[in-house]
């Protein structure tokens, strides 16, 4: 089965190795016996989004987000929304997650509109939230952990129409206050986790692939892959799993 992965703005939106998510989806789809095809979609393109099996969009710095906002909202917005309503799985990281919410309010009070796919809004924060994240998610029906690295100044708050992707165990998550991380709407996921996310959370990669296959073929279960290395990376990335960063404090801290 062909599996067509749409990579939105690969030339502009790629921060902290977000393209690793597409690499992971592509390789794992192949290992599951599928025939993945990655289609880059960027400024000026207007494809039929419902023809895609999966949509991915990575994060960007402020400048890059500014470059794509008009194109995303006007040329692509309705198509992406229709595809998500039709059940196409989507993964949006960090800046992409913010852009798919209602708006981003800058420190100066300017409101930058988003697509409104997720019922979330983002407010600029006074400091950046940076560090390793460990979260718990029941997305797949059972409780699983997610690990990643976050680096954002925006604080995202969920509206009544949004369900969090997970609960933060260590780290800041959506806003550093309410313990939520990310958002889910139908098969669309938004999250702050870089890392790259999917290579060291293979269960989430397979969840997205599973949803994509199910949409085309109905109740098919993907086989389990040998994820020994991925699981090892998952454990190594989990904050608090192995405290190796101490030392050197004490006396030095005085000065």
């Amino acid at each position: 089965m062909r599996l067509v992965i749409c990579h939105l703005y690969p030339d502009i939106m790629n921060l902290y190795g977000d393209r690793g998510n597409v690499i992971a989806l592509d390789r794992r789809a192949r290992w599951h016996g599928l025939e993945p095809v990655v289609v880059p979609v960027s400024l000026g393109d207007a494809p039929d989004f419902e023809k895609f099996d999966l949509i991915f969009m990575g994060g960007g710095q402020d400048r890059e987000q500014g470059l794509i906002t008009a194109d995303l909202l006007q040329a692509k917005g309705p198509g992406i929304k229709a595809a998500v309503e039709a059940g196409v799985p989507l993964l949006a990281i960090c800046g992409a997650y913010q852009l798919l919410g209602h708006y981003y309010r800058t420190f100066a009070g300017e409101v930058l509109p988003g697509l409104g796919l997720f019922d979330v809004r983002t407010e600029a924060g006074p400091t950046r939230i940076i560090g390793d994240v460990l979260a718990e998610s029941k997305l797949s029906g059972e409780s699983r952990t997610l690990v990643g690295f976050e680096n954002h100044s925006g604080r995202t708050f969920l509206g009544p129409g949004a369900v969090p992707l997970g609960r933060v165990l260590v780290g800041g998550g959506n806003n550093g206050r309410d313990g939520t991380e990310g958002a889910v709407y139908r098969n669309a996921l938004g999250t702050y986790l870089h890392g790259s996310l999917l290579p060291k959370n293979p269960w989430l990669a397979d969840y997205l692939l599973g949803r994509a296959v199910e949409r085309r073929r109905g109740g098919v279960r993907l086989a389990r892959l040998d994820d020994a290395l991925e699981d090892m990376a998952h454990r190594a990335a989990a904050p608090g799993a192995a405290r190796r960063r101490g030392g050197g404090g004490g006396l030095l801290g005085f000065f």
Binding site: G20, I23, P199, K200, L229, M232, A233, A236, A237, R244
Partner: peptide
């Protein structure tokens, strides 16, 4: 290194087969 496993996963996904990859943090 501390993140040997992250590197190993990256190399695996780059197509480096297990016979050419050793992981030792």
């Amino acid at each position: 290194g501390i993140r040997a496993a992250d590197l190993a996963v990256r190399l695996k996904y780059a197509g480096l087969g297990p016979s050419r990859l050793a992981v030792e943090p």
